[in-house]
Amino acid sequence: MTVENVAALMAELVKMDYVAPDESFFDVGGTSFLSLTLISRIESDFGVKLSMLDVVRAGTPVNVAELIDAGR
C-alpha cells in the first residue's frame, strides 16, 4: 500500500491525476520546495522522517516507499 499512497501524495502535490510508481517526482513538476512539503507529509502520514537528500536520491514512489518501509 505504501507505494500507492506515496504516488497519490506526489500526484496531489504536483496537481496531476496520478504519478506512476516508477516516475520521478522531479520529472513530473516536483520542485525542491514541494519536496519539503512531501517530507513533512510523509512524516505525518507514515511516521517516518526522511532527509531531503533521501527523497531526492529516491525520486520515485517505489523508491520512496522502500525508504519508508525500511524506516518503520
Binding site: 504536483v14 496537481k15 496531476m16 491525476d17 496520478y18 516516475e23 520521478s24 522531479f26 520529472d27 513530473v28 513538476g29
Partner: peptide, 18 residues
Amino acid sequence: PNRRELMDLPGVFSVDRL
C-alpha cells in the same frame, strides 16, 4: 495542456515546467 498528456508523448521523460 495538462502535464500528463505531455508526459505520455513518445520520448518525453520530464515536463518540469508548465
